[in-house]
């Protein structure tokens, strides 16, 4: 899997209320959620984000509530992948379970600017900043999670097991 897009750069501890405020959680429609994605952090994001763009955050991205609406809103907004120094654990689980590619990288955030063009090679575990020509390593995805991704998420893997 390879992704290329503009980086939307944010800081540490971006909580799920900033990714998708609770006032919009009376729906679970992905398209509707996407129109409010990142609203309380960056009012411009939902209007300007393009298909394939990448969210680039510092530490503890997705902390707070367990709402799967957060990765759903991000995915439905067209974002191809989220890169962060670290992820909060429920957000991490949810992203794998519902199929939003996420990558941990200790260096990419500090060495990139908002608006840079990034390229992520999930298989090689590499992130390239095409704007400043720097390359960063991504933390390898644990084998168990890779299996989960390969089978198309948690529910698909359960279906497979049931049939098998």
């Amino acid at each position: 899997m390879k992704f290329r897009g503009r980086a939307w750069r944010y800081g540490s501890d971006i909580d799920t209320d900033r990714i998708i405020p609770a006032r919009y959680l009376n729906t679970s429609d992905p398209a509707e959620l996407a129109t409010h994605c990142m609203e309380d952090e960056d009012g411009e994001f939902a209007k300007k984000v393009k298909k394939g763009d990448i969210i680039l955050a510092a530490r503890n991205f997705g902390c707070g509530s367990s709402r799967e609406h957060a990765p759903i809103a991000i995915k439905a907004s067209g974002v191809s992948c989220v890169i962060a120094e670290s992820f909060a654990r429920i957000f991490f689980r949810n992203s794998f379970n519902m199929g939003l590619p996420i990558v941990e990288s200790p260096e990419a955030h500090a060495a990139s600017r908002d608006g840079d063009i990034l390229e992520v090679d999930m298989n090689k575990g590499l992130i390239r900043n095409l704007t400043n020509k720097k390359t960063f390593s991504a933390r390898p995805v644990p084998p168990f999670m890779q299996e989960l991704l390969k089978s198309g998420g948690l529910l698909k893997s359960i279906q497979k097991k049931k049939r098998g």
Binding site: E68, N94, N97
Partner: peptide
């Protein structure tokens, strides 16, 4: 529990943890 504050039940001496909706479905 598909609610992050599921960890509350640790007060009773249970292992309790918040997960997402897909985990709950599974």
């Amino acid at each position: 529990g598909a609610d992050s504050h599921t960890c509350t039940y640790g007060g009773l001496g249970a292992f309790a943890t918040g997960v997402g909706s897909t985990d709950l479905a599974a």
